[in-house]
Amino acid sequence: MTATTRAKTNYLVTVLGGLFSLLAGMLITLRNLFRRPVTEQYPKSKPALSKNFRSAIALVRFEETQTHDCVACMQCVQICPSFCIAIEGDKPEGLKRKRATEFHVDYALCSVCGLCIDVCPTNTLKYSRVYDQVAYRRDAFVYDLLTEFRDAEVAYLEKARQEAAAKEAAKQAAAAARANKDTAPAAANASKELEND
């Protein structure tokens, strides 16, 4: 083979190879033309949220108390890298621990790192499953987490107050009984039973 014919064959190979590569590409797109589209028609078909989906935090509702268990320890406020949690709490009448009276999360700032959930000592924080929040104003993303617990919280505190009051009454009764120990030993026994409860 002379040099020129070799060059010609190379040229031909290049041109035909190029043409073939174009046809191969077109074959791929043609094949995909007849495949099923993979589009998820979002507002019509809602996506299934994943198992561990992370969104704004929410408070856990516990079975036995029917309310949250935020004790306003402020650990989540301190660890939050986005400084988006604001909690206020006080010690309600009849409870030994503090309770949250205000719990605001600014989801617009939140970076869903989950550090607050990690540090929570009472495990009362969880991820909510909100995924389609839109608003015209930033402050619409400031969530008041206690809203859904208002009634339950009132009931819980009332119950706690009553229990504490009952306990207090029993205590006073016992104290009174102790004072009258000599005269009425039977009453002292009764108050002992109450304390053991």
Binding site: T29, N32, V38, T39
Partner: peptide
């Protein structure tokens, strides 16, 4: 529509 189908999308619906 064609581009959508080539790309496995739906195009305008």
């Amino acid at each position: 529509k064609l581009s959508a189908r080539f790309q496995r999308r739906l195009g305008p619906t």
